[in-house]
Design a protein around this nucleic acid. Structure first.
Lengths: 195, 195
DNA sequence: ACGATAACTGAACATTTGTTCAGAAAAAAG
DNA sequence: CTTTTTTCTGAACAAATGTTCAGTTATCGT
C-alpha cells in the first residue's frame, strides 16, 4: 500500500520553508543558494527538490502562504462597528500581525521583482485584496462623515506605508512596548483621516 | 607629462553608473552580473574595473552619492520660518526629490543588506542625518506648541515611511499631478502631527 | 522478517559568477 | 611622427550556481 505520509517529510518540509524564509529575508532571494538552505536544514541540496520543484516555486510558495494567512487573519479580526473603531482595529491588527512575522513581511514586498510574471500577478492580486479591506473601511468612514479624505486610494496606500514603517525600526525589548507603538500609530492615523 | 584626464573615462564612467543604477533597481544587486552592466554600456566586463575596484564598491558608491545629493539638496531647500511651513517644505521637497530618482531611492533602501558592514554603517550615518533634519523640524514644532506628537522619533520615521510610499505607486501621467499628490500627502502629514 | 516506498546522498552537468591580466587599440603629449 | 599613457579587449581562472538522477539508507505496512 502507498504510505499515507512520509516519515520525515512532515519535519523536513517545514524546516526547509523556515530556513528559506530566514535566509531570503536576511540576504535576499538571489543571494541565497539552494546549498545554503540545505546546509541550514542539515541535508544535501538535492533533497530540497522533494519539497519544491525549483527555487522560484519555493519563493512564491512562501509569499503566497504569507498573504493568505494575512487575509484569513484579518477576516477573523474584522468585525462590525463604526468606521473609526474598525480603522483602529485594522491599525492594531496590522502592526501586531506583521511584527510577528518580520521575515515573511520583508520577503513579501522586497522580493516581488524576483517572481516570474505569473507568480507576481498572483501575489499582487492577494496584496490588492488586503489593501481593499482597508479602503473599504475608509470609504465607509467617508460615507458616514467620520473621515475627511480627498482620495481614499491614496490614503489607503499612505496608511499602509506608514504602518509598514514600524517593521524597519521596532525591536522588541526597546524603549516602547508593542502596545504603546500601536497606540502612537493609531493616534497619527486617526488624526490623518479625520478633519 | 601626465594626462590631466582620460579621453573616454568621463563618458564611460557615468554610463556605467547609470546602467548599474537601472539594473540594480530593476533586478536587485545580487541578480545583476558585471557582464550585464558591461553589455548595457557596450563594453567588455573587464573594462568596468577601470571605474570601480569591485562590484560592492559600485553599489556603495551609487548609494553614497544619492544620499549626499539628498542631504545637499535639502540643505539648499531648507530655510527658516515656523515649524509648520518648514514641515510643508520638507514634505513637498521629499516627494519631489525622490520622484525624480526612483531607481536611486529604490536601491538606497532595498540593497542595504547587500552592503558590507563598513559600507552599511557609512550609508546608515547619512540616512540618519536626513532623518534628523525632519526630526529637528518636528521638535521645533513641539517646542512652539504647533505640533502635538507623543514621540518625535517615531513620528519622524512614520512620516518618512508614509512619504516613501508614494514611490511604490505613483506614475507620472496618472490620475493626479505631482503637485496634487504633494498636497494630499501634506494634508495628511499636517493633520497627523497637529492636535 | 520481508518487501515496498519514501527520503536522502553524492556526484555530476552545463552555466554563470566576479575578477585578473597581458596585450591591442586609441588618444593625447611632445 | 614618436612616445607615453589611457582605455579597452579577449581570454582565462577558480568558485559557485540550479538542477538531475542513479543508487543508498531508513522507515513503514504487512
Amino acid at each position: 500500500m502507498a504510505r499515507t505520509q512520509g516519515s520525515h517529510s512532515d519535519i523536513t518540509g517545514p524546516r526547509i520553508r523556515s530556513a528559506a524564509l530566514r535566509l531570503f529575508a536576511q540576504h535576499g532571494y538571489a543571494a541565497v543558494s539552494m546549498r545554503q538552505i540545505a546546509k541550514e536544514v542539515g541535508v544535501q541540496a538535492g533533497a530540497l527538490y522533494n519539497y519544491t520543484p525549483d527555487k522560484q516555486s519555493l519563493l512564491h510558495s512562501l509569499m503566497d502562504r504569507h498573504m493568505r494567512e494575512l487575509l484569513a487573519a484579518w477576516q477573523v479580526e474584522a468585525g462590525d462597528g463604526d468606521a473609526l473603531s474598525q480603522l483602529e482595529r485594522f491599525v492594531r491588527f496590522h502592526i501586531r500581525f506583521h511584527m510577528q512575522r518580520p521575515d515573511a513581511v520583508f520577503i513579501a514586498y522586497m522580493e516581488l521583482r524576483n517572481l516570474t510574471e505569473e507568480n507576481f500577478a498572483a501575489i499582487e492580486t492577494l496584496r490588492r485584496a488586503y489593501e481593499y479591506a482597508l479602503e473599504a473601511v475608509l470609504k465607509q468612514g467617508v460615507a458616514s462623515g467620520q473621515f475627511t479624505i480627498p482620495d481614499t486610494k491614496i490614503a489607503t496606500l499612505a496608511v499602509i506605508a506608514m504602518l509598514n514603517g514600524v517593521m524597519t525600526w521596532y525591536r522588541s525589548g526597546g524603549r516602547l512596548s508593542l502596545e504603546e507603538v500601536e497606540s502612537v500609530y493609531w493616534d497619527m492615523v486617526r488624526k490623518s483621516v479625520t478633519a
